[in-house]
Design a protein around this nucleic acid. Structure first.
Length: 424
RNA sequence: GUGAUUGUAGCUCAGCUGGUUAGAGCGCCGGAUUGUGAUUCCGGAGGUCGCCGGUUCGAUCCCGGUCAGUCACCCCA
């Protein structure tokens, strides 16, 4: 057995599964393009300080959950743990925010040093969009529609859109204090985790899973009842736009974000089939982020969608329907036939996008047909001594189980043309 | 980082409170059928029983460690 294995929390993807990835990525790109979003590609690693922003609660993240290393020039580098920071860095570095709103999407891997479990890997992949420079709720609705369209295209009726508002720098501190006032008197009765969160990040108590916290969370004040006028208007506008777009949602006051640069809208698409890692897509507005990274104050809104989790949901909800048979299995019987068939197969591959399979090993016909079935081929093309003697080539319809003979003319390209015609 | 649980053939799994050459189904290769896919029948290949150590006359089985998968917590940028 090979002593070298894939690193913990990483995965190899083979056919036919890799085809699902390609299709999902193509659909994500297609939908993003429909909304006028263009792709941005940024480095897989960045200077550590780009991700080491914020204070207090993020130091754990920096130390424990990032792949950080020193390069040979002794610079501190980190494998990107998310893709938004690199996007903002690139926009600032190239001064693109001076050109008005920027609508971008990305697809790619990110890295987090966490203990793996279902739907959580150390190398995972994300499709995300970012809209910078539009402060109005129409942008929030726009990015939500992108995610909703992708989810609907895959028929994930199970995924539910949860929306909430976390306020802004004006109203969130007030709310935070209201939360503290609510929980502090009961601190001793909260779970140990929530007692810790009480000091560090009281908003996080709201999504506690501990039953000890349930009754206090239930009665806790809600952010949406403490929004300032601007934030309330924004939230109301968002709901209007979602209604106008025909996108169903539920207001879930327990959706929160830990970091200060998040403002107003937060949303998640959640699926019940995923277990504890149930969020298939999470996003929101982060009007404070660009400034925090040293840029001009610029509103932004976007989401990230985990490809692993998305495909898990698709896999669990969709029954296995056999893909349609495609392409031609070339079967050569004998060396002379093989020499002839190689040219024909080569010409076929020039002329048609349908796959042409060829197994040049000297095997029995029965074995070749089994290979054709395994390749899910639609047609079999058989050339042997019998056909060579009559200047014919046999094209077998593997669905109808019937043979048909085509003329074997000297020009391989002409044979290929006839085959494309016959199989079209 | 915490707790629980599982590692036996390519895959899914048996394997008796420790005892001879570790099994099945599926898959793969070949044959029955020397040129036509299914079914059936026959044969074959494929295993350091995750790894290291300990106990024992003897370990897939018991013990310790370690690596990995899974589930939940923590975290979720």
């Amino acid at each position: 057995m090979n002593p070298i294995s894939a690193p913990r929390g990483t995965r190899d993807i083979f056919p036919p599964e890799s085809a699902n990835w390609n299709r999902l990525e193509a659909d994500a790109r297609d939908i993003a393009h429909r909304f006028g979003y263009g792709e941005i590609r940024t480095p897989i690693f960045e200077a550590t300080e780009l991700f080491a922003r914020g204070v207090g609660e993020t130091t754990d993240i920096v130390e424990k959950e990032m792949y950080t290393f020193q390069d040979k020039g002794e610079r501190w580098m980190t494998l990107r743990p998310e893709l938004t920071a690199g996007t903002v860095r690139a926009l600032l570095e190239h001064k693109l925010l001076a050109h008005g709103p920027q609508r971008l999407y990305y697809i790619g891997p990110f890295f987090r040093y966490e203990r793996p479990q279902a739907g959580r890997y150390r190398q995972a992949h994300q499709f995300g969009v970012e809209c910078f420079g539009v402060g109005g709720a129409e942008a929030d609705a726009e990015v939500i529609q992108i995610a909703a369209m992708l989810i609907r295209r895959y028929g994930i009726g199970d995924a539910e859109l949860n929306v909430n508002s976390v306020g802004d720098a004006v109203c969130r501190p007030v709310y935070r204090q209201a939360l503290l006032d609510h929980f502090r008197p009961h601190a001793a009765q909260l779970s140990a985790d929530s007692q810790r969160r009480l000091e560090r990040n009281p908003l996080r108590i709201l999504d506690s899973k501990d039953s000890k916290d349930a009754q206090f969370v239930e009665s806790a004040p809600k952010m949406i009842d403490h929004l300032c006028d601007e934030c309330r208007a924004h939230f109301e506008a968002l709901k209007r736009y979602l209604d106008a777009l025909g996108i169903a949602y539920v207001v879930n006051p327990r959706i929160v974000r830990g970091l200060d640069y998040y403002t107003r809208t937060v949303f998640e698409f959640v699926s019940s089939v995923l277990g504890a890692q149930s969020t298939v897509c999470g996003g929101g507005r982060y009007d404070g982020l660009v400034a925090e990274l040293g840029g001009p104050p610029t509103p932004g809104v976007g989401f990230g969608l985990g490809l692993e989790r998305f495909l898990m949901v698709v896999d669990k909800l969709a029954g296995d329907h056999a893909p349609p048979r495609r392409g031609i299995q070339a079967i050569a019987l004998g060396e002379r036939a093989r020499d002839r068939l190689i040219a024909i197969v080569g010409a076929l591959r020039e002329k048609t996008a349908e796959p042409t399979f060829a197994d040049w090993q000297a095997r029995k016909v029965t074995a070749h047909f089994k290979t054709a079935d395994r390749n899910n081929a639609r047609w079999a093309l058989i050339l042997g001594d019998e056909e060579l003697a009559k200047d014919e080539i046999v094209l077998r319809d593997l669905l109808a189980r019937s043979d048909r003979r085509l003329p074997l003319v000297p020009d391989a390209a002409e044979v290929a043309r006839l085959l494309v015609e016959a199989t079209g």
